[in-house]
Design a protein around this nucleic acid. Structure first.
Lengths: 248, 248
DNA sequence: CGTAGCATTGATATCTGTCAAGCGTTGTGG
DNA sequence: CCACAACGCTTGACAGATATCAATGCTACG
C-alpha cells in the first residue's frame, strides 16, 4: 500500500497549520511530544483512494491540507457523498477496526496519521483529546443534519446554491475573514462530485449551474472559477435565512 | 412551560430501564448519586413539542421511553426530520445554550433531564460521561450518514423499505433479540411523520405502503400494525445488502 | 350524528433522470 | 507537430418518478 512517494516527513506539531483546530488542539507540550512519536504524514494525489469501505484501518488522522470526501456506494453503483473533509477534520473512528466509508482524495491531500492503537491508549489517558474529538464530532453531526435537509427537501437549484454558499463562506472566512463584497473562489469539486454530494445527476448539476449563471446569481470563468457578486442573493436562492445562516 | 402534569417523580437510577445504554451507562455508584441530584423527569404527550429550535435550553437529557423526533423547518414550511430519538438517546448539546432543532414527542414520551450547567461541570470531572457521549455521538453520526444515502439516492419504494427495516430491526432486538421468522410491530409514526423523515410527501408514502402490501412484502392490519413475513425480502427492497445490513 | 384527524386513491403537472450528441482542453503517441 | 483519444462539461429530447391538487373513506370521539 504505502510507497515511497506517499510517505513524507512530518514537520513539528508546533509548526502545524492545523495545530489549533484539529483533534490535538488542546494538547500540551508533553502530549504533543507523545503524539509526535506515533504520527506520520501521508500524501495522496487528487483522485486517489485513501481507504476503501470495509478495509482494515490501522490509523486515524487529520486532514492537513487538501480535501477528501467520504462516500457510500450501493451495490448497483449509486453513490452518495456523506462528508467533505477539510483541513483539520478527523478521519477514522477510535474503537472501530474497519472503515465504514470510502475515503477519496478530492484534491491533492496531505494527512497526519496516528497509529490507531497507541492513539486509543492516549485518548483514555488524555481527556483533552476525547473532549476535543467530542466537540468535533458534534459539529460534524450538525453538519450532517443540515445536509439531510438539503438532500431531503431542497430543489436542484437550491441544492446547488447551498453547496456554493457553503464553499464560498468557508473560503471567505479562511482568506479574508469577512463576507462582504463579491466573493471569488475555485470550485474544488468536479460536476460529478457535486452531483454525488447533492444527490443529483451531473447533467442536472450542469444545467442548474448554467441557470444560476444566466440569472446572474453566479459568474463563471472556465468551469471552476466562480464569482459570487451578491452573497445574500445566493443564500436566498439556497432557501436559507439570509441572516447568519447555518447554525448561526 | 412546566406544569404539574409534565413533571414526574424520577425513580432511582438503579432501577432505570436505560441505565446501561444511556449517557450514564458507565457511571459508578457515587457518580450516579451525583446525577440523581441534578436530574428530574418530564413527561410529554404524543404531539407535544419538547423544545423549539432557537429556544434557550437549560437542560440536556435522555429519552427514557417513547419516541421523539428532531426536525428542521424551512421558512416556507418544508420540514425534514433529521433524527429519531429512541429510549437511551441523548438530547441537547453540552456547550450550546439554544436548541438547534425542534424536538417533538412522536409518541407519549418520558425524559430524564439533567440541569445543564451542573451536567457540564460533571462532564469535565467525569471522563466516563464524556467518553460515553462520544461513543453515542459517533453512532448518531453514522446513522445520519446512512440516512444521507437514503435521502439522496434511494427511490420512494426503497426509502419506505429502509424505514420499515430499521424500525423492525430495532423492535425485534428489543423484544426477542433475534431476527428470525415473521416480525410484527406497530408503526410509531404517522404517514406524515414518515414523509418528513424520508423526504417524501405523505401521498407518496401512502401509495408505496399500498404497493409493498400488494406485493406481499408487508402485511397491514389497520394503518399501523405491520407484519414482515420475510425480513430478507424487505432488506432487499431497501437496496441494502441482505447480510447484516447497516454497519455490520 | 356530525366532525376532526388520518389515510387512501385518482388525475394531472412538474421536476429530475436517462440517453445521446457534441464541445473544448489536455496530453500523448505516431 | 499534428491527430486523436480521453476527460470534463454542456445541451437537447424525451421518459419516468414524485409532487400537487382534489375527492373520498375510515375511525374515534364528542
Amino acid at each position: 500500500m504505502l510507497n515511497d512517494k506517499s510517505l513524507a516527513t512530518a514537520p513539528d506539531c508546533a509548526d502545524c497549520p492545523i495545530r489549533h483546530r484539529a483533534v490535538c488542539a488542546r494538547c500540551e507540550t508533553d502530549e504533543l511530544e507523545r503524539l509526535e512519536e506515533i504520527k506520520y504524514y501521508r500524501k495522496f494525489e487528487a483522485g486517489q483512494t485513501v481507504i476503501w469501505s470495509g478495509d482494515r484501518m490501522d490509523f486515524v488522522g487529520s486532514v492537513v491540507s487538501g480535501i477528501a470526501s467520504l462516500t457510500q456506494t450501493m451495490e448497483d453503483g449509486r453513490t452518495q457523498m456523506v462528508g467533505l473533509l477539510l483541513p483539520s477534520d478527523f478521519v477514522g473512528r477510535p474503537g472501530r477496526s474497519t472503515a465504514a466509508y470510502d475515503v477519496v482524495a478530492t484534491t491533492d491531500l496531505v494527512m497526519c496519521c496516528f497509529r490507531k492503537t497507541p492513539f486509543e491508549e492516549m485518548m483514555v489517558r488524555t481527556p483533552h483529546i476525547a473532549q476535543r474529538l467530542l466537540e468535533m464530532t458534534l459539529d460534524e453531526l450538525d453538519a450532517a443534519r443540515e445536509w439531510m435537509l438539503v438532500l431531503g427537501r431542497k430543489t436542484a437549484r437550491e441544492k446547488i446554491a447551498s453547496l456554493l454558499s457553503i464553499i464560498a463562506r468557508r473560503d471567505a472566512t479562511l482568506k479574508t475573514g469577512k463576507l462582504e463584497g463579491a466573493l471569488v473562489f475555485d470550485l474544488p469539486l468536479t460536476r460529478e462530485a457535486m452531483a454525488d454530494y447533492l444527490g443529483l445527476t451531473l447533467e442536472t448539476v450542469s444545467r442548474q449551474m448554467s441557470a444560476l449563471k444566466k440569472d446572474g446569481v453566479i459568474q463563471l470563468e472556465g468551469k471552476r472559477h466562480v464569482t459570487i457578486p451578491d452573497m445574500a442573493r445566493l443564500m436566498d436562492e439556497a432557501g436559507d435565512d439570509a441572516d447568519g445562516g447555518i447554525l448561526a
